[in-house]
């Protein structure tokens, strides 16, 4: 464990807590893409298949349970909670996320470290996480105005993977033979996808005005 990875995990934890807080307290999911939340639930379900077989540490197991629990409960809230579901804008949240799942699965079957069931699904979860934010970013551009909590959620979600990139650089230089191109490239692409959001988020924060992405 290094400071970059710990900062990344805490930022990731903060992002899901901000979203859960928003949905649970104001009982609204306005501006939040259910498709992105469903993709994240799939990401965690396929990445943490080893949760009961490989014990790494209490921290590792605890965080996996938190991420699994929060992502599935957010999906449940947005789909089934009688009040929250009314604020879900399904007419705007139309990104065909199945067009993301299939290519990621095919790619994971071609590019992986070992062609086994768990390894292919683990690789699939990395590719899927890299593009999971797309429905949310498309929804933002459609709905134009977004509330602060949703903006903070996306910012934290992007920042966590940026911290992980520093973690991978650190581990590359401190641990011999620590080379994993697949998460590195997927993580880099994921962070780049947030590029323009970060740009507009920073400018809205600097000029202290409402965050608006260009149409």
């Amino acid at each position: 464990m290094n400071i970059f990875r710990f900062a990344g995990d805490m930022t990731h934890l903060a992002s899901v807590l901000v979203l859960l807080l928003k949905i649970h307290t104001i009982k609204s999911c306005a501006g939040v893409s259910l498709k992105t939340q469903e993709l994240y639930a799939i990401v965690f379900a396929t990445r943490y298949l080893d949760i009961f077989t490989d014990f790494i540490s209490l921290y590792n197991t605890f965080m996996k349970l938190v991420f699994l629990g929060s992502s599935f409960s957010i999906v449940w809230y947005m789909r089934s909670h009688k009040i929250v579901r009314r604020s879900y804008d399904k007419d705007q949240d139309t990104f065909r996320h199945y067009f993301l799942i299939v290519p990621c699965l095919l790619l994971a079957m071609i590019i992986n470290e070992k062609f086994t069931f768990r390894e292919v699904l683990w690789t699939f979860s990395l590719f899927l996480e890299a593009v999971a934010i797309l429905p949310q970013l498309v929804l933002l551009q459609r709905t134009r105005n977004i509330d602060n909590l949703t903006g903070q959620y996306i910012f934290l979600l992007g920042a966590y993977r940026a911290f992980y990139i520093f973690n991978w650089i650190y581990r590359y230089f401190t641990e011999p033979h620590y080379v994993h191109w697949i998460p590195w490239i997927a993580g880099l692409l994921q962070t780049l996808l947030y590029g323009d959001f970060f740009y507009y988020y920073f400018h809205s924060w600097k000029n202290n005005k409402k965050l608006q992405l260009p149409a």
Binding site: R5, D54, N60, K64, F67, Y164, N167, P183
Partner: peptide, 10 residues
């Protein structure tokens, strides 16, 4: 026998 490097990251 080197055990496979575990996936210790989240």
């Amino acid at each position: 026998f080197q055990s496979p490097p575990q996936k210790d990251e989240l």
